[in-house]
């Protein structure tokens, strides 16, 4: 069975093609602002090309992400939490929870034994934009995103407001203007972002354990993962291709329906 999934996030659109559950092609591109349907199609086509198959061979295309309504050729739309749950369970069998910290949204779900999800929580406005914030600050500080907040200068203890990413940005710019090293500022931003994201995590009443899968673009940043682990007191499982987990989950939803 060949299935496809598109995860259209605020920043990036990801597409995967699965054959009998295995990823045979994938692609990623910047979502952009205006031509989302075109971007979705292009990214999907790139994934098909990588898989070496034609669109007609795909039995179901499902879309998730904030831009899922802008994927006109998707036969099904899947909410982000459901897609994340399916994706985590597929990429990491035995996972008991999934957490996604993306450009815009943070979510966490406790995976159930008898049903897909036992409990979930989504970010509120004060937690929104964690990924976007980190990218913006990385660009401003001239540090590649995957190295943001890493290194010796990052070890200098300092803090920015963690109440909101907007407040954090103001504080961070203040620090910079007062001569702090870019990586020191970066580390403070990382810690603030981790605190914000962790707050969503703590909304769950079921306890987290060590089989929590971390997905989303921010999982690629080592410093952020370390900070989030420290804030939440857990060690995440980060599958290869974690940022495609949503697209994988959407694809699987296309076949499985809503019940495990």
């Amino acid at each position: 069975m060949i299935l496809a999934g598109i995860d259209m996030g605020i920043e990036a659109t990801k597409a995967v093609v699965l054959r009998d559950g295995a990823i045979i092609g994938r692609a990623k591109a910047s979502t952009g602002g205006t031509d989302r349907p075109i971007q979705a199609r292009q990214t999907y086509d790139a994934a098909l090309a990588a898989a070496g198959i034609a669109a007609i061979e795909v039995e179901a295309v499902s879309a998730t992400g904030i831009g899922k309504y802008d994927v006109p050729f998707a036969g099904r739309r899947v909410t982000e939490v459901i897609a994340a749950a399916h994706g985590a369970g597929h990429l990491c069998p035995g996972a008991t929870a999934v957490m996604s910290v993306g450009a815009g949204e943070t979510l966490i779900a406790a995976l159930g034994a008898d049903r897909l999800i036992d409990e979930y929580a989504l970010s509120q406005k004060c937690i929104a934009g964690v990924g976007l914030f980190l990218r913006t600050m990385a660009d401003r500080l001239g540090i590649p995103l995957d190295l943001f907040g890493d290194g010796e200068a990052a070890c200098v203890p300092t803090a920015v407001s963690d109440g909101c990413m907007v407040f954090a940005e103001l504080d961070a710019l203040s620090m910079l203007n007062r001569g702090a090293e870019p990586q020191t500022v970066a580390a403070a931003c990382i810690r603030a972002a981790a605190v914000r994201a962790a707050n969503t995590g703590f909304d769950l009443t079921v306890p987290n354990d060590t089989r929590t899968v971390l997905i989303g673009g921010t999982a690629k940043n080592r410093a952020f993962v370390r900070a989030l682990e420290a804030a939440m007191g857990i060690a995440f499982i980060i599958p290869a291709g974690a940022e495609y987990a949503g697209a994988v989950g959407a694809a699987i939803s296309g076949a499985k329906g809503l019940r495990k």
Binding site: I127, S161, G163, N199, F202, A231, M232
Partner: peptide, 10 residues
């Protein structure tokens, strides 16, 4: 004070 806060949002 100001201290990183992972508690109060809950």
């Amino acid at each position: 004070e100001h201290e990183p806060d992972v508690i109060s949002d809950k």
